[in-house]
């Protein structure tokens, strides 16, 4: 490629992180994937579409720095540049927080389109953190997407809701309605994967989930104490101390941008008694 000769235009790819069901790990995923892409040098912005229940800012640890938000920009009360919060750990990473006080009606298709269009000029990856549900907020988050990460727990209601969301991606999005356009490229990310419970037959294995949903697998994130810890601290899990979940998110982000990475299920190493008694070496 002519990478060294001319400055490359930003990729401007819009990726929605969605699920239908709440609490499956959309925001954790948005923060982790966004941070990992940024760490690899791609200019990345993560947008919170959950109007009225802002949480991405807490997970990213920038909650004290929110001045203007997505809705202020849509309504013309602030410039996009003013609302973007530059991450203090990675200069390639930005957050566009949403409003805590408005409701989802404040999201207009024209407004969202205008903001995304502006972001496409400056960023390689625009990660849209969808609210739960399949109503207006979730539909706005997916409407302009080029790709989708469907976050799914190996559990019946989550899989069912993911199927519903996959249907919406294929019917109500801009790409779905445009003649000749490629459909939204959807991949499923299995989170809260618990190998022990799968081995004992208590939890559906990944193959079963994939067989039912019939979309490619982006990654498998093991259930890990590191996710709660990272959320407590306001650090995307890939930027906190090494963990199985962090490694799994690094792999998933690599696959998202086309790298061939073997699917592996890492487990957190539990320090043995001797290790605990004689200090932590890891």
């Amino acid at each position: 490629m002519s990478k060294d000769l001319i400055p490359e235009a930003p990729l401007g790819k819009v990726i929605v992180v969605t699920s239908g069901k709440g609490g499956v790990g959309k925001t954790t995923t948005s923060a982790a994937v966004g941070a990992e892409l940024a760490r690899r040098g791609h200019k990345t912005v993560v947008i919170d579409f959950d109007v009225g229940l802002r949480n991405l800012d807490m997970i990213m640890g920038c909650e004290r720095r929110v001045v203007f938000d997505f809705i202020n920009v849509i309504q013309g009360d602030a410039k996009l540049k003013q609302a973007l919060i530059r991450d203090r750990r990675l200069e390639t990473l930005s957050v566009l927080p949403t409003s805590q006080t408005r409701d989802k009606d404040a999201l207009t298709r024209e407004g969202v389109e205008k903001v995304l269009e502006e972001l496409r000029q400056d960023f390689d990856y625009i990660i849209c953190d969808s609210p739960a549900g399949i109503e207006r907020g979730a539909q706005m988050a997916m409407y302009f997407a080029d790709e989708a990460i469907v976050v799914t727990n190996p559990e019946v209601s989550s899989v069912r809701d993911s199927d519903r969301v996959l249907g919406l991606l294929n019917s109500i999005t801009e790409r779905a309605g445009k003649e000749g356009a490629e459909p939204v490229k959807a991949q499923v990310l299995i989170t809260r994967h618990n190998k022990a419970r799968i081995d004992s037959g208590e939890m559906m294995p990944v193959e079963d989930v994939l067989e039912i949903l019939a979309v490619p697998l982006l990654g498998i994130i093991p259930e890990s104490a590191a996710v709660l810890r990272a959320s407590n601290l306001g650090v995307p899990v890939v930027l906190d101390e090494p963990s199985a979940a962090g490694t799994a998110y690094e792999d998933a982000a690599g696959r998202l941008i086309g790298e061939q990475i073997e699917m592996r299920i890492a487990a957190d190493r539990r320090p043995g008694l001797l290790q605990r008694l004689f200090g932590r070496t890891a």
Binding site: M58, E63, R64, V67, F68, I71, N72, D77, A78, S99, Q100, T101, R102, L228, R229, S231, N232, L233, G234
Partner: peptide, 26 residues
């Protein structure tokens, strides 16, 4: 990390409850 979580929430919620984030203030 749980104590960090509590501190962060206390600071944030004190602001939100006091109306410091009224929509049109800023």
């Amino acid at each position: 990390s749980a104590s960090t979580a509590k501190e962060r929430l206390q600071i944030l919620l004190a602001h939100e409850r006091s109306g410091g984030t009224r929509p049109d203030c800023l």
